[in-house]
Amino acid sequence: MTTPGTVPDDTTPLFSLHDVSQERGGATILHGLTVDVPHAAITALVGPSGAGKTSLLRLLNRLDDPTSGEVQLEGKPITSYAIGALRRRVGFVFQRPAMFAGTVADNLHVAVELGGADAAAKALPMERILAAVELSADYLNRDAARLSGGEQQRVSIARALMTRPDVLLLDEPTSALDPEVADRLLATVARLPKEYGISVIMVTHRLHEAREASTWTIMLEGGRLVEAGPTSELFTAARNARTRAYLATAD
């Protein structure tokens, strides 16, 4: 029998967490979490607030390290990768977009410059990256600080895409946005895996987002794994009563 949350076949998962605990300021945020994140197009991390969703996400490009346990990326300890290269391979988009000083082009340029000559050589044209997040090339010369929340979040995603990542981590990317703007942004995100060949792992508390966009869902509660599986199965026939109760609130 397999542990709930692990992928029941031989393919190496994208990420796997083994008995991962995270403590901060005396409080335990993750309690011995063991879970796999498969090579899915979009994986949703769901659960009530305080479930540890963001804490888990931050472990995946080592913005934090767990207090105990191990995180693996494609079967190797995540600590065995060079930190800069790991973070350019696994992009992160924060809940609140933090724009760097200057224009949108300046923001995108920083991502390329940080990757050195290699990144500059394989960087896609900025116009193309902006098109991926559905912003026109006119935005390049606009002051990033003066954009709306939704536009800034699109620039954040574009900036993360500049490093040509394999994986994009999104921490509640739509939570600060109006529902309409949020839906449009989600539609953009949903197209990224097919068009750019990247895996997206997204924290969300908007359950309809998980249901509509993701192919795999991981449900956390109180720093523990409740259930994980294909999104369609979880939303229609969750094995766990708590998952059923929580996901039912989606409507």
Binding site: R87, R88, G91, F92, A98, G115, S156
Partner: peptide
């Protein structure tokens, strides 16, 4: 903090992330 971590998340060194 947000800006510094945004730099780190793009693979910046601490010196670069905290430059400003």
């Amino acid at each position: 903090r947000g800006e510094v971590e945004a730099y780190l998340a793009l693979g910046a060194t601490p010196a670069r992330a905290a430059a400003e």
